[in-house]
Design a protein around this nucleic acid. Structure first.
Lengths: 237, 237
DNA sequence: ATAGCAGTATGTGCACACAAGATTGGTCCG
DNA sequence: CGGACCAATCTTGTGTGCACATACTGCTAT
């Protein structure tokens, strides 16, 4: 007879920090699949809107449908895929309207990151930021993918300097959701130089410990990025 | 032989609005469980930190473990439960540090809502807002739960006036995550009157179409709420 | 008495099987 | 000739069984 009270069992001793990717602990098949599919989607290797076939993926990874299904649920939680019950799962495709809205929210969140970073950044973090930026400048001529990755590093460094793990998680999550689209923007004519200039402004504000300037610069950066993205979409619509 | 291309099947015609709760469409067992458990957790009827037993819930709802497992994954996506592989799922408990961080982010998001609402609110929405506020004032003496619900309505009306579905979704999601804790704050001595006063200020700024004032008032509201919550936690720590 | 260890029990992870709903192609009727 | 209905097939949703990992309990040894 096991049916005790509703939920009165061994409570865990409360984790120190409630952040950290949800499921790093055990390397279950479902978790592995979750990570791998997430990477594929974020990198844009799976077209937005395309359907994900349980069986196909199951045999591709040599497992049964069960863990695949569970991975889908996890991805749905991050809003990376859409679950249409009885009709399978599909990579979420984002319309122009939603994209506008997302960039507005991202502007606010990344702006907060920048503001906090300006207040809290340490000496070591300042130097790290400058080093990353130097690498970004150096990579201006390299492949777009390399540039994109260093760009991401820059923002990641700011999250860290902001010293708000929750904010970092949420911002990162949002960033992931638009990543597949955002990556394409890097291909635009002046985007690389623009990015470098905008990053410079952000960085200087942070190094100068000027929260409002950092906030403003970061928001502007995101706004411009969003507008570029919309131009791109309008162009190929 | 079914193994075609990776994912080149029937693409859906892109949903009009990429928001809307993830899975309202089909009433599968897993989805039903997801919603019910979400309600239980958000309402605080399941203690934070307590473990969720697959079998127990399965037999309580008269189904097998499979849909229960899937519901857990969905809840994990919303960060409402924590998945510790091989050790079951537990309602996420939020530490003081994280709570502080969350309220900072919520302040920013709800602040954005208020700012947009001040710019975009329609005549009808203004009236609706006032009506809700009037009900809130009238409910000041009623049960805490009633007050809490009307309070939520007020914020919901602002989300709607902000006219940014994505922002509304994210803000609502965050609100849900802290709901179990937040609800308790309403019990504090002066919280009811404070809330009414703060709401008044927010509402007036929105009605006056003053974005910056609305933003400021809303952020202040969230900040005070967060501080109250921390006092509460410190008090019973 | 406490710490370490082994055996046991419980519960989760995964695979497989079955059932139900959805989609597609074909056929029949208007 | 077109549209609607129907059937076959495919895909997802759910139930069940088994194996392994983790936690627990009682023992022994220092």
């Amino acid at each position: 007879m096991r049916g005790k009270q509703a939920a009165g069992r061994a409570d865990w001793p409360e984790k120190g920090r409630a952040s950290a990717r949800i499921e790093t602990f055990p390397a279950t098949l479902a978790n592995t699949l979750h990570r791998r599919l997430e990477t594929e989607i974020v990198a844009g290797r799976i077209e937005p809107g395309s359907r994900l076939d349980e069986q196909e993926i199951a045999e591709r990874y040599g497992c049964s449908r069960t863990p695949v299904r569970e991975a889908f649920r996890l991805l749905a939680a991050d809003r990376l895929v859409e679950l249409r019950g009885r009709q399978g799962a599909a990579v979420r495709s984002i319309g122009a309207q939603t994209l506008i809205e997302m960039f507005q929210v991202m502007g606010e969140l990344e702006g907060l990151c920048a503001r906090l970073a300006a207040r809290r950044v340490t000496q070591a973090q300042s130097q790290a930021l400058q080093a990353i930026h130097a690498r970004l400048v150096a990579a201006a001529g390299d492949s777009v993918d390399v540039f994109y990755d260093i760009n991401a590093e820059f923002h990641e460094a700011i999250y860290e300097a902001a010293n708000n793990a929750f904010l970092a998680d949420e911002t990162r999550r949002l960033r992931n959701r638009v990543a597949a689209y955002r990556r394409r923007v890097t291909h635009m004519p002046t985007r690389v130089e623009d990015t470098i200039r905008e990053h410079e402004e952000i960085m200087e504000a942070i190094l100068a410990h000027d929260p409002e300037a950092a906030h403003r610069a970061m928001r502007a950066h995101l706004t411009l990025l969003g507008e570029n993205l919309l131009d791109l979409i309008a162009g190929l619509g």
